[in-house]
Simulated scan of single mutants.
Amino acid sequence: MTAIKPFAAVALQIAARSVERLSDRAEVSAQMLAMIDEIGVKIRASGVFIQQYGGSPLRLVVLPEYFLTSYPGRISIPDFAEKAALDMDGPEYEAMGRIAQAQNLFLAGNAYERDPNFPGIYFQTCFVIGPSGDIVLRYRRLNSMFAPTPHDVWSQYLDVYGLEGVFPVARTEIGNIAAIASEEILYPEIARAHALRGAEIFVHSSSEIGSPLATPKQIAKRARAFENIAYVVSANTAGIEGSAMPLASADGNSVVIDYKGNPLAESNTGETFTAFADLDINALRTQRRKCGMTNFLARQRLELFAPVYAGQSPQPANSLIENGELKIPDRDHFLRVQEQVIERLAKDGVI
């Protein structure tokens, strides 16, 4: 493989901005575009400081989960899709593309997005925009508690995008990038599926409780890094503006973790770029090619687990497909499905 010079990556900790109190899509879009302009300025200033500090050129920026809109709350799924979900070719992506192009970097983030193949709903989407200004990776969150996922429309989603669209890996000039959304960092199968398709860098957009104590997500980030021999660049929100929730409820602990599971840099609270570090992809690739007990990827024996996984599906596929048609859910649909899953697992003696 072609050698890749070390480069700087930053988990940019910024406040998400709720659209809950805005009246219509025009107002929402105006706020999102204004915020993207602000982010462009912050990224440029951060890159200048990182190089002055002695770092390598900034080539990868990861933004937090749903930074443009915050979470939907109790707004109905079709109403939120209409009001705030991004179009796949919308002006917000174009604006972020201009930032990536002007600053010669890869810009990763997370947004709610509507897909014309699935009208009336949205998916929570992780994206990576390349220095060309084009989207080079689009990953839809697969495990969510209160929002539609590709698995909820599984048969139709595979018809449209195939498995390549479910676990995409972008092979880029700075390494092979995959995305993990928010609490999905707690599910090792998702990271492992990406790693088995070649991922070397996990970009992780999150909005989570920050704490000086070790939270489940903080532990999981380190585990996903060393068990897959991959970097994790995890950006948390610096609070959520304009919502009913106290501002700093999801704030702090953005982090860059190396392929041995060691934090290289971690932020405190507030808006900051201080979670930045150099990524050395050549060193990662050397580690993956070494024989020894710590080469966890090479030591996988996946056939052992295939029969167990094949016989189990606690969360059912196609919960939003009824008689071959897409069903628009209410918010409580997902709780009802989970209640049925728990009842079945108890009956089968699993729990």
Rank of each mutant, 00 (worst) to 15 (best):
R141N: 12
L142W: 01
N143H: 13
N143Q: 13
N143C: 11
F146S: 11
F146R: 12
A147H: 02
A147V: 08
A147P: 09
P148D: 06
T149S: 02
P150H: 00
P150N: 07
H151W: 14
H151T: 13
D152H: 07
W154N: 11
S155K: 15
S155W: 12
Q156G: 03
Y157L: 06
D159M: 07
V160P: 07
G162W: 11
G162N: 10
G162V: 14
L163H: 12
E164S: 07
E164F: 10
E164I: 05
G165S: 06
G165A: 06
V169I: 10
V169M: 05
A170Q: 09
T172L: 06
T172C: 01
E173C: 14
G175Q: 13
I177R: 01
A178T: 14
A179F: 00
A179Q: 05
I180M: 00
I180Y: 04
A181F: 11
E183S: 07
E183P: 03
E184D: 08
I185Q: 06
I185P: 09
L186E: 01
L186F: 00
L186D: 03
P188C: 02
P188Q: 01
P188E: 01
P188G: 05
I190G: 03
A191L: 03
R192A: 13
R192Q: 15
H194P: 07
H194G: 10
A195V: 07
A195Q: 08
L196M: 13
L196R: 12
R197E: 00
R197C: 01
G198M: 02
G198I: 02
G198Y: 05
A199D: 10
E200G: 06
E200T: 09
I201V: 15
I201T: 12
V203Y: 10
S205L: 00
S205M: 08
S206Y: 04
S207A: 14
S207N: 10
E208A: 01
E208S: 02
I209A: 02
G210R: 04
G210Q: 03
S211E: 11
P212A: 14
P212R: 13
P212D: 15
P212E: 14
L213M: 15
L213F: 15
T215Q: 08
P216K: 05
K217G: 05
Q218H: 13
Q218E: 11
Q218K: 12
I219Y: 13
I219E: 15
I219Q: 13
K221Q: 04
R222K: 05
R222I: 00
A223Q: 05
R224T: 11
A225E: 00
F226S: 12
E227C: 09
E227V: 08
E227Y: 11
E227W: 09
N228E: 10
N228Y: 00
N228I: 06
I229H: 04
A230K: 06
A230N: 05
Y231T: 06
Y231V: 00
V233K: 05
V233C: 04
V233W: 01
S234Y: 11
A235R: 00
N236T: 15
A238N: 04
G239T: 09
I240H: 06
I240K: 01
I240A: 04
E241V: 08
G242S: 13
S243C: 14
A244Y: 09
A244D: 12
M245I: 06
M245R: 06
P246Y: 15
L247W: 15
